[in-house]
Nucleic acid binder design. Structure first.
Length: 160
DNA sequence: GCCAACGTTGGC
DNA sequence: GCCAACGTTGGC
């Protein structure tokens, strides 16, 4: 069981969009960075918990929690010429990019802001601060539980 | 294999 | 909108 932070621009796909999916599940696609791809492909597992991070917006920070519900599979968008994520160099035989499906778990009552996170001693070693551009990144159990407690999601104290 | 040029991310 | 950081591309 691992913990992750996945970034998304909420204008593209937000925690509300995930919550509003008919199935309660969404496809985490469009990852086009090799380091993030390798983590998705090799280390992200069904059941892992994900901090849903909103980037490039007014309220930058962790907006809620999701859970990984599939292993990595070929990202369909790489084969779709209409998609912004189309990759003409990828082939069906050897897909270059992968995605996973995630399920909505919770939305924080207020987004835990990046500037708040930077002030918390337990969070100073987060990959977020060292590799700011990595869009799929590992989170320690301490970092995860610290964040959900700061967000006031007390139910995690009993369910984790 | 190096490295300059270029493109993208993402906080502010 | 700016700009720093950093990933990718491509010439040599």
């Amino acid at each position: 069981m691992n913990y992750w932070l996945f970034k998304s621009e909420p204008e593209e796909y937000s925690i509300d969009d995930l919550q509003n999916e008919q199935t309660g599940m969404g496809v985490w696609d469009g990852i086009r960075n090799y380091q993030a791809r390798n983590l998705l492909r090799d280390q992200v597992e069904v059941g892992d918990l994900v901090l849903f991070y909103h980037s490039s917006c007014r309220q930058v920070g962790v907006a809620g929690v999701a859970r990984v519900v599939t292993g990595a599979y070929a990202d369909p968008a790489q084969f779709d010429p209409q998609s912004a994520y189309f990759d003409g160099k990828s082939t069906q035989a050897a897909p270059r990019w992968v995605c996973v499906d995630v399920a909505f778990v919770s939305k924080f009552s207020t987004t835990l802001l990046l500037k708040q996170m930077k002030q918390i001693p337990e969070l100073t070693e987060m990959v977020l601060f060292k590799q700011g551009r990595l869009s799929v990144q590992p989170v320690t159990e301490l970092e995860f539980t610290t964040i959900v407690e700061l967000a006031g999601e007390k139910q995690y104290e009993t369910t984790l």
